[in-house]
Amino acid sequence: MSDVKKIATRDSYGAALVELGKEHDNVVVLDADLAAATKTCVFKKTFPERHIDCGIAEQNMIVAAAGLSTMGLVPFASSFAMFAAGRAFEQVRNSVGYPHLNVKIGATHGGISVGEDGASHQCCEDFALMRSIPGMVVLCPADDVEARAAMKAAYEHEGPVYLRFGRLAIPVFHDEENFHFEIGRGEVLRKGSDVALISTGLMTAEALAAADELAQAGIHARVINLCSIKPLDEELVLKAARECGRIVTCEEHSVIGGLGEAVCAAVAEAGVACRVKRVGVNDEFGHSGPAKEVLAQFGLDAAGIVRAAKSLLG
């Protein structure tokens, strides 16, 4: 895997903003003194007049974005997930979600792969918070190709969209030529019917690696990538539940309120007999350390997914 190209999806975010900015003059970008980290600095360099730094004031940033959207602009408000979804939650809820304004929230540094900065900056609650807002689309791309496609889809979607990007460089496994992205649709990356690994974000590359390892043990895992946390591709999830009977959900998020719970709800309400194991952050805070080490400590890697899958099959 060492020759696989790796790109952090926050870099994809910056690059996609520039592309969108070139195509559409109504794209504006807001940041809260984190342009170098969220990569909106790339957009700022190309379109300085359309980059609005709000200073360290995320609450005002989100609602100013709402105001900008009412003037026909398409704002991408950017910060770390912790501050965009966490600190400014009520602003997103009341001034973006409730009026259903055309605001895009580009949240970088999601999850514990933030690494060294530690728990204060490792947001594992954003899916839960954003999913709970009526009408909010929640996207978490798994690689550079999907991230840039998700940005285009977010721009074209009329209404609020929350996009979660990561700090850590991760493998690019999608083939851009043949890739098609649609909000609300997932994709089967690997066929199999012993167990379904349903994953999002950086966990999808780990799920693919886990499927390889499971195959060596004679276990054929289906790998499903769900960038669209909300709306959820229930059809794909229920098909997997019926055909595999065992699901492992994989997300760099708390097991509370994220993809795992969304999948559980879909399966339970459909009355499908299926066991589910959620791989995620188990109701605890993260901590400092190199991203890879922290991910491994929390079982958010191929080895952790293999353990979970085997526990369902054992």
């Binding site: 504006v28 007049e49 359309r50 609005i52 609450q59 005002n60 989100i62 609602v63 100013a64 974005a65 709402a66 105001g67 900008l68 959207s69 009412t70 003037m71 026909g72 602009l73 704002p75 602003q91 009341n94 001034s95």
Partner: peptide
Amino acid sequence: GQGVSAACGMAKGAKLT
């Protein structure tokens, strides 16, 4: 506390456009 932020965004938007 939120309306005034929205107004700021509108005023900035008017100027930007």
